[in-house]
């Protein structure tokens, strides 16, 4: 079983500036914005303004930021129910995401999908999937289309550690490897399924990486709390895929601060574990990184203030937005826009 101590947490990330200031500032802004938006989602839940369920990625922001920052326009993201971060990281407006969580007419899908199904085709967010593992084969299909049509986009599929034990994971990995598809599988190993530690139910210590060899893929385990490392690993995998080198499987070690879903107080964690991970908070790490690269405190503060303001503005817009129009109850079941099943 993987203990935190065993993990290959990054030594001092290399200071060589292959990433560049612009991308670094962008990744910082993404992480802060995701953090602020998700904390706001939690507050709104406590006020009973976010209904249904929601699954936060607090603590996992570096994976979303690093992977998205390395993408090009036209690249496709396939997310899970824990998908707010990945959706925001592709540039979907905060208002659209919060609006969907608050079940308002201004939501990304006008309340028809809910927090678990965030989708914005215009931003390359090809859906958030709530059946564990379902989207890995779907991402393969999108990658197949790119391969078939000679298009250069990659499909990036995010999922959790628990997802590595479902059949669709293994079907997709083999399928992608055999067909050499431009798809990247990103496992966010946050140590837990809903409540059970992944190590309790998995035959190998690294649920994704230790399976890579079975599909002829290299074993990749990285520090998922360091956006630079995520960015570099993702960029290399995308490049390989675009060049026809086939899929990659990347296991990112990270941790979620909140419970599994909105109602979970996460009592199942050993004492001190959360605190230990918070010492390696991705945003804290990245703030320091920016300073090491000579970014002034003023600029960093300005990014944070701007993110907060954007979340505040989005919140106000959502609070003022009406609920979904009742007419949409029966629209878009079929391509003709309606739900007619007979004449």
């Amino acid at each position: 079983m993987a203990k935190i101590e065993d993990r290959a947490l990054a030594p001092n990330a290399s200071l060589n500036d292959d990433i560049g200031e612009e991308t670094r500032l962008r990744m910082y802004r993404m992480q802060v914005e995701i953090r602020e938006a998700e904390q706001r989602a939690y507050d709104l839940f406590l006020q009973n303004l976010v209904k249904g369920t929601s699954h936060l990625s607090l603590g996992q922001e570096a994976v979303a930021a690093g992977c998205a920052a390395a993408m090009k326009p036209g690249d496709l993201s396939f997310c899970t129910y824990r998908g707010h971060a990945h959706t925001l990281a592709r540039g979907v407006p905060i208002e659209k995401v919060l609006g969907e969580l608050m079940q308002r007419d201004n939501g990304l899908m006008r309340g028809k999908g809910g927090s678990m199904h965030l989708t914005s085709v215009d931003h390359g967010v090809m859906g958030s999937y709530a059946i564990i593992g379902a989207h890995l084969p779907i991402a393969c299909g999108a990658a197949w289309r790119a391969q078939y049509k000679g298009q250069k986009d990659v499909s990036v599929c995010f999922f959790g550690d628990g997802t590595t034990n479902i059949g669709a994971f293994h079907e997709a990995l083999n399928f992608a490897a055999v067909w050499k598809l431009p798809v990247i599988f990103v496992c966010e190993n946050n140590l837990y399924m809903e409540y059970t530690p992944i190590g309790d139910v998995t035959a190998v210590p690294h649920p994704a990486a230790d399976r890579a060899a079975a599909y002829g893929l290299p074993r990749i385990v990285i520090d998922g709390n360091d956006a630079d490392i995520v960015y570099r690993t993702a960029a290399a995998a995308y490049e390989k895929a675009r060049a026809g080198g086939g899929p990659s499987l990347i296991e990112c070690l990270t941790y979620r601060y909140s419970g599994h879903s909105r109602a979970d107080p996460a009592k199942y964690r050993p004492e001190g574990e959360l605190e230990k991970w918070k010492e390696r908070d991705p945003i804290k790490i990245y703030r320091e990184r920016l300073k090491q690269f000579g970014v002034s405190e003023d600029i960093i503060d300005a990014i944070e203030t701007y993110a907060r303001r954007r979340v505040d503005e989005a919140t106000e817009k959502c609070k003022a937005a009406p609920p979904p129009a009742v007419e949409i109850l029966t629209t878009d079941v079929y391509a003709n826009g309606g739900f007619a099943w007979r004449n």
């Binding site: 496709l76 090809m126 859906g127 379902a134 989207h135 890995l136 084969p137 779907i138 991402a139 393969c140 299909g141 999108a142 990658a143 197949w144 289309r145 790119a146 078939y148 049509k149 499909s155 059949g167 669709a168 079907e171 997709a172 083999n174 399928f175 055999v178 067909w179």
Partner: peptide
């Protein structure tokens, strides 16, 4: 255009869906 797959029914239908969503 005519591709033999592994015995992976989820991969077959999932891949069909992903391909359909993106233009095939």
């Amino acid at each position: 255009r005519v591709r033999d797959t592994p015995i992976s029914e989820q991969a077959i239908l999932g891949a069909a869906m992903g391909a359909a969503m993106t233009g095939l």
